[in-house]
Simulated scan of single mutants.
Amino acid sequence: MQEYEYITLRQRPELKNRAAEWFYYKWGVPQEAYLECMESYLNNKTEYGWYLCLDKDRIIGGLGVIENDFHDRKDLTPNVCAVYTEEEYRCKGIAGHLLNMVVDDLKSKAISPIYLLTDHTGFYERYGWEFLCLVQGNDEPEMSRMYIHR
């Protein structure tokens, strides 16, 4: 069985630039936006962190936590964002492990509930997330599903 390393960016701050670039290529959000959020986390201005899965030194999965994931419900905060696992590593429990990691980390800091915006159905429920409501995404014609983890 393959062993992966699960870390917070605070554990490996030297990965910041590489992580920001990796998320940029997955989601198209400007790298500078990721760097700004990561800097706030690394400088202890926020507990909204960044979580990575590594295969040796390669980033193969990750997610972050931000104030608002581009939607109109500013009261539903913080938001897990940018959940991604490299295609060849999917169905190995990586995203689930990262989701559990972020929930445990934030709960240990008395940050609860947390929210997640997605178009997926069936996946997040496996990890204790519950459908909460539909929200309007910024610049999106369709409504998106908002999930909560209490």
Results as ranks from 00 to 15, higher is better:
E47P: 08
R73G: 00
N68G: 02
G64W: 05
K74C: 00
V80T: 08
R145I: 05
V103D: 04
G64F: 07
D105C: 06
E5A: 11
S40L: 12
L117R: 13
F131A: 06
Y24W: 14
A82K: 07
S108F: 04
V29K: 11
S108M: 09
E14N: 13
V80P: 04
R12T: 12
E67Q: 12
L134I: 08
I66V: 15
L9M: 09
Y84M: 11
P78A: 00
D72K: 12
L52I: 02
C37Q: 14
L63K: 03
R10F: 02
E14C: 08
L98V: 00
N100Q: 12
V83E: 00
W22M: 08
D69Q: 00
S108V: 03
T118Y: 06
M101N: 12
G128T: 04
W129Y: 15
Y4G: 01
Y25S: 13
G64H: 00
E87C: 05
L35V: 09
M101T: 11
F123I: 08
I114Y: 06
K109A: 09
D75M: 05
I94V: 13
D119K: 15
F23E: 07
K92H: 12
K45F: 04
E5H: 10
L99W: 03
K45A: 03
K16V: 11
M143S: 13
I114R: 01
P13A: 07
K26C: 13
M101Y: 14
Y34T: 04
Y115N: 03
A82R: 08
E86H: 03
A33H: 13
P13C: 01
E130N: 15
K74R: 13
D72F: 06
F70Q: 11
C81A: 15
G64S: 07
I59W: 02
E39K: 14
Y6I: 10
Y84Q: 10
E87G: 10
I114T: 01
